[in-house]
Structure formats: structure tokens, C-alpha cells
């Protein structure tokens, strides 16, 4: 059974008071659930959140399904998101994505064999002057080459 930590529950209570309506707290609370649930939002955690927030489960589901940053399935500890929009593609993002995919033997939106990495192609991340670029969890990595991208991921897997 999924449950938020005591701090998580306190966070939800605070967010419920923060905006004009309780409903606006759904996005921030889903983020909290995602971070305490290893990077994704499970169906049971949505039911849990609905009860905790005292809001209809349909409202939580509506938000959960609409926004791309809520992961619908388990992701690796490292969520590697390579921008595949126009400027990044002009400057080699697809070749870079393929190189990562081959090196770690995983397809798009799939977990690597060791379960540590998920690779995704995402839309413009607003860092076109440093293309090609990728986001790993919360941080941006810019001006990449296929080799430098792989090195960054390997270093992070090994906890450097």
C-alpha cells in the first residue's frame, strides 16, 4: 500500500491551504507522490491521494493523465530525457538518442536491463542555444556529443 511520509502528508495539508481552491493543489501533490514513489505515480497512489485530499478521484486522474511530467509507469533512477525538437534535431539529437539507446541496450521509454535508466525523447526544453541537450531528472546537460552524453550517464549511474 502506498502512503506518503509524515512530511509528505504535512506538505499536502499545506498545499491544500495555499491556493484559492483545493483543486489547484493537485499538481503539486502529484509531484510529491511521484517523488516519494520512486519517480512514477501508481494507480493505487491516486486513490490514496484522492482520499487524503478529499477530492474526487476523477479530478486527480484528469490531471495525472493530461500532463507529461507525471510518469505513468515505473522509471529508472535516472530518467534521461533527450530533447528531440527542431533545433536539437538539426544539431544531432537523434543520432545522440540512438547512441545512448545502443550503448545501454534500451529502447525509447523502456528501462535499461539493470533497471537503473529510462530513456525518453521529449519536446523543446527551452535550451536551444546549447543544443543538443538532455534533462536527467531535474538537471539540464547541454552542448552534448553522443560520447559526452554517454559519459555523463555512466558517471551518474556510478554515483559520481
Amino acid at each position: 500500500m502506498f502512503k506518503l511520509s509524515d512530511e509528505g502528508v504535512a506538505y499536502v495539508k499545506k498545499e491544500l491551504e495555499r491556493y484559492e481552491t483545493k483543486r489547484s493543489a493537485i499538481i503539486p501533490c502529484l509531484y510529491r507522490v511521484q517523488s516519494e514513489n520512486g519517480g512514477w505515480v501508481s494507480p493505487e497512489s491516486i486513490n490514496y491521494l484522492s482520499e487524503l485530499m478529499d477530492l474526487p478521484v476523477a479530478w486527480i486522474n484528469e490531471v495525472f493523465h493530461f500532463y507529461t511530467m507525471f510518469n505513468k509507469e515505473p522509471v529508472g533512477k535516472l530518467h534521461v530525457q533527450v530533447c528531440n525538437n527542431i533545433t536539437c534535431c538539426m544539431l544531432g539529437a537523434r543520432e545522440l538518442t540512438e547512441h545512448i539507446s545502443k550503448t545501454f541496450e534500451m529502447g525509447i521509454d523502456e528501462l535499461s536491463k539493470d533497471g537503473k535508466i529510462t530513456l525518453s525523447k521529449v519536446e523543446c526544453l527551452g535550451s536551444c542555444d546549447t543544443a543538443p541537450m538532455m534533462q536527467i531528472n531535474d538537471s539540464y546537460h547541454e552542448n552534448l556529443t553522443p560520447e559526452s552524453a554517454v559519459k555523463i550517464i555512466k558517471d551518474m549511474v556510478h554515483g559520481n
Binding site: 523543446c124 527551452g126 535550451s127 536551444c128
Partner: peptide, 11 residues
Amino acid sequence: DEGEPGTFKDR
């Protein structure tokens, strides 16, 4: 919500 591809001035 700067999202128009190519835009990064607000960031």
C-alpha cells in the same frame, strides 16, 4: 510557460 520551440529568453 515558455514552450514555443526555439524560445529560451524567459528562462
